[in-house]
Simulated scan of single mutants.
Amino acid sequence: MTSSLLSYPEPCADIAPQRIASSIDTEDQWRSLRAHHAQSHRQQGNVLVSRWTRNITTPFEVVNHGNESDHCIGLSLKCVSLTFHHAGRRLMQGRVTAGAVQVTAPAVPVSAVFESPADVLHLFASQQVLAECYEDLFQRPHAGDIVLGDPKLIRDPALDRLGQALVVSRTDDAALDKVFTESVGLAIVSRIVARQFTASNTRNREGAALPQWRMNRVIEYIDAHLSEAIGLADIAASAGFTRMHFAAQFRRATGLRPHEYLLRRRIEHAQHLLLNSKHNVFDVALSCGFRSQAHFTTVFKRFVGETPYCWRMKANGAQ
Rank of each mutant, 00 (worst) to 15 (best):
S126I: 04
G317T: 09
E135K: 09
H65S: 13
H36S: 14
R95P: 01
R19Y: 09
S200D: 13
R95C: 15
D25S: 13
F60K: 09
D70V: 08
P308T: 04
R90E: 15
R95Q: 10
H295F: 00
K78F: 07
F296M: 08
T97P: 12
V47C: 04
V47M: 11
Q139G: 12
A315T: 04
N316W: 12
M215F: 08
L226Y: 14
A237L: 10
T57N: 12
R90T: 15
A270K: 02
L148M: 07
H65V: 08
I188A: 11
H122Y: 11
Q293D: 05
I73Y: 12
R252N: 06
S238D: 04
A233D: 14
H85P: 01
M1Y: 13
R155P: 02
V284D: 05
L210I: 06
S190N: 01
R89P: 03
L176E: 13
Q102K: 07
N64A: 12
G66R: 05
N280K: 10
F180Q: 13
R203K: 08
R251I: 06
H269L: 10
F197N: 11
Y8L: 10
L130P: 03
H259W: 15
G149I: 01
F250N: 10
L274F: 04
R89D: 08
C310E: 12
I24D: 02
H225F: 00
F282D: 11
S292E: 07
K78L: 01
Q93K: 01
M1H: 13
M1S: 12
A247S: 13
L91V: 00
V80R: 05
I192T: 00
T104W: 06
G94E: 03
L226A: 02
P258W: 07
S190D: 03
P11K: 05
A294H: 12
R90A: 05
H85N: 06
Q39D: 08
S3R: 11
R140A: 14
T57K: 10
T58N: 10
P9N: 06
